[in-house]
């Protein structure tokens, strides 16, 4: 059982990008807040804090998750991957090569989600891609270049970290 008192902040450990980090959090702090304010990992963005936009997406246990919809204290025993942990993902390069980036604010969330998609489903069809990527809002591109990036990746078979 892990118990944290109501008002005081607590020292917890978060397992992020293969490293264990100390963080001092309130029980009410979401993972998003802890990553940004305690670990300085600001790639996950505060787009809505309501699970609607996907800008804060990270991987928890390899699965895409809105980091605004988990408490930091809730995920202390689970591996977390943020955009900062995906520096060599072929997804990033595909987004650059396919012009899928404009303002860049939604980009980390999209890349994290796409990374999980193509590693979990290297044979994803359009229906599955749509199901997954509808979790993220991009207000600049109109999604076409993002679609092209994902299709290019899947077609190239380059779906694992090299």
């Amino acid at each position: 059982m892990n118990s944290l008192s109501k008002t005081s902040k607590q020292l917890i450990q978060l397992h992020v990008n293969g490293e264990t980090h100390d963080a001092v959090v309130r029980s009410a702090d979401t993972l998003l807040i802890a990553l940004r304010e305690q670990l300085g990992l600001t790639g996950a963005k505060r787009g809505c804090e309501n699970g609607d936009c996907g800008a804060c997406s990270v991987l928890i246990n390899g699965k895409p998750s809105h980091s605004c919809l988990s408490l930091a204290v809730e995920v202390i025993d689970q591996p977390i991957t943020t955009i900062e942990g995906l520096m060599d993902s072929p997804v990033s390069k595909a987004f650059v090569d396919n012009w899928a980036i404009q303002c860049g604010y939604c980009t980390p969330g999209f890349i994290v989600n796409c990374h999980s998609l193509i590693t979990t489903h290297p044979d994803a069809n359009d229906e599955l891609i749509e199901e997954w990527l509808q979790s993220n809002i991009c207000r600049c591109t109109g999604y076409e270049e993002i679609r092209e990036a994902v299709h290019t990746l899947l077609a190239s078979g380059q779906t694992e970290n090299e």
Partner: peptide, 17 residues
């Protein structure tokens, strides 16, 4: 951001919960 504080507990049995 949640403004108020609460206690978080994660029990391991239904009885305890």
């Amino acid at each position: 951001m949640i403004a108020f504080d609460f206690k978080y507990i994660k029990p391991t049995t239904a009885k305890e919960a």
